[in-house]
Design a protein around this nucleic acid. Sequence first.
DNA 1: CACTAACCGAGACGGTACGTCCCGTCTTCGT
DNA 2: ACGAAGACGGGACGTACCGTCTCGGTTAGTG
Lengths: 201, 201, 201, 201
Amino acid sequence: MSKQPDPTRRSERSRQAILAAARELVSEVGYAKLTIEAIAARAGVGKQTIYRWWPSKGAVVFDSILALSEPSADSGMALPDTGDIEADLKVVMRATVAEFADPAFEAPIRALTTEIINDPGLAAQYREKLAGPVDEAKKARLRSAQRAGQIAADADLDLALELLYAPLFQRWLLRSGPLTPEYADTLVDLFLKAMRPPLRH
Amino acid sequence: MSKQPDPTRRSERSRQAILAAARELVSEVGYAKLTIEAIAARAGVGKQTIYRWWPSKGAVVFDSILALSEPSADSGMALPDTGDIEADLKVVMRATVAEFADPAFEAPIRALTTEIINDPGLAAQYREKLAGPVDEAKKARLRSAQRAGQIAADADLDLALELLYAPLFQRWLLRSGPLTPEYADTLVDLFLKAMRPPLRH
Amino acid sequence: MSKQPDPTRRSERSRQAILAAARELVSEVGYAKLTIEAIAARAGVGKQTIYRWWPSKGAVVFDSILALSEPSADSGMALPDTGDIEADLKVVMRATVAEFADPAFEAPIRALTTEIINDPGLAAQYREKLAGPVDEAKKARLRSAQRAGQIAADADLDLALELLYAPLFQRWLLRSGPLTPEYADTLVDLFLKAMRPPLRH
Amino acid sequence: MSKQPDPTRRSERSRQAILAAARELVSEVGYAKLTIEAIAARAGVGKQTIYRWWPSKGAVVFDSILALSEPSADSGMALPDTGDIEADLKVVMRATVAEFADPAFEAPIRALTTEIINDPGLAAQYREKLAGPVDEAKKARLRSAQRAGQIAADADLDLALELLYAPLFQRWLLRSGPLTPEYADTLVDLFLKAMRPPLRH
DNA sequence: CACTAACCGAGACGGTACGTCCCGTCTTCGT
DNA sequence: ACGAAGACGGGACGTACCGTCTCGGTTAGTG
């Protein structure tokens, strides 16, 4: 029977200030050195106001990143579909490479990933709120390619996404190699070779 | 000009006690709640003895895992080579799946990965000391398959390893799906399809 | 521009617990072995609560002794005045001798003195808060004696107090000789001889 | 049956270096912040060499001050005796005032006093080695004055020294007033008044 | 239109851990 | 064998944050 705060009373001004402060501080000092006290101070907010609405530091950071992505999530979120799956995937993969190289994205995403690894709850939220919609858009494009006979009709699309993106993600996460547009292209080529439909005689 | 301790005077007894304590505590309380003080107390050691030889909590944990792997690293570290690359890879991949499922391995590896993500220095050490030897063994097996004409002779083997392992690693790291022997097999199948040498007429 | 804590929010309960713990611990282990950590633990208080309100160990001990004296300071604080300055001073000096011999007083006062010697700031506080009122009372009695023609009318009373008390204080502080009632009497006799008014014809 | 070090093997060079380092450091950082490690480092000596020959920090500092006084202690150590006790004492007292005002003397003496207060063993050593000879010289001068009928023949000379010096010492120790040549003179005047022999008719 | 309940900023509180300093002991090596 | 060097187990330091807990002071919505 614990006391739940009343969301209708919540100060939107404070919420925005907290998320903005969290975003800034993650970029400035990194996730590990980020503290609730610093967020509260930067946001001009009492600590209690943070503890009232978020259960953990990770949750705040997660929301702060989520808040960035939401506006674009409302809009279409569809991948290009020119009919040429290879060209379309290369465009998308090269864009992903560019995103990972952008320092403004890198710090928060790395922070978020760190937290997700050790918090299954956040991981679930991540898949639902952030990865989910994006993955759906990607799978929609692959389904279109299946219909066009460009990739195997019976392919497991979740697995397909892993095959395509996991090498890129791992190389970035562990810094185990350079992320270049050529690398993106090569991954697409290998992916298509693996997913190619069986030959008809 | 800074003062470095003299490694020849180092107490091997203390070193072992610290690494053992770190290993135990990571399993017991998890990496995030692991503290230097707890390691020192468990090891019966002064905190300064830890700070003297390791720059960070991450470095201690890294060494504690490294110490586990070293004995086996001395021995052969060769993968099975029956001539059947598909069968051999499936054995290895299934073993990897099993390893990731073992809670005794999972906790420290997850801890290590967390640390590696945010510490490029540790990441480099990881690649050199832990991943390196293993990857070399795997690439040796793939080279053997190249000689046997089972995979493309001009394939980039680092990339090949990423294609084969990254999906598995990512699924485990982000808990984005079940790790089963069948999954391991499927990855091998897709991998071989992608790496297959071009047909000669 | 530095951040001061707000005294109105101060916890009186904690303040009392800290002063009591400090008093007890000085008696138990002595001033040199007294630690802030032990005071905090005994008082059931966070260390920060001590550091927030006191600048040093010495200041805490000082306050803990001050707190003891304050209640009596409110009351009269007047010395006996029977008209016989010799008898009155001997009573007071013998009382001082007895006080110095009481182990319950000795430890904290010795601690306090140690700290005062090396901290001019504390020394000033000591004179204002502790020694000051007592000295005033003593000087009041001497002034009465001046009016009665028992000691020189033009005598410097601060100097007079030094002449009377310093030998006693020094013998106690340096343990350079026994503190007996007879010693007290002798000091009064010498003091009166030195302060006697000049003879009239 | 603990192992005693053999004094014949003792390195005089190290002993001197340690005492010099202690003297310097007391002046530089004060007694409270003085550490054995700093003394050892400054002296270019192992810590064990200090622990082998001295039981405590206080003992080292005591010896370091003692070493300064010893050369002069060997020589005469007699006070001036012009036959005029008042003039002679004023010279000596004014010299003491000047000594206390000298910062080079002040720091170590204050440190020494601090230690003596809390260590009865050191106090005894102090009286024997340092204060003793000086006091003897002073008492010799007073005895001469007794013979000359300038002070009471039956006066307790230890008490006399306290009466004369304690006010000065206390004022310096507690910083309770200015130390001036006039103050020294006044003390001598009062002292002589108190010690004056009884009138003969 | 007062009343009152909630959120809010602020920040003191009991704690835990930090990374550092120094203690006094012990060990190694060089002279 | 002593001395320099310094690693060791240990204890305390003073600081940074944790998450909880009052404090007034707004700020709604209700009676």
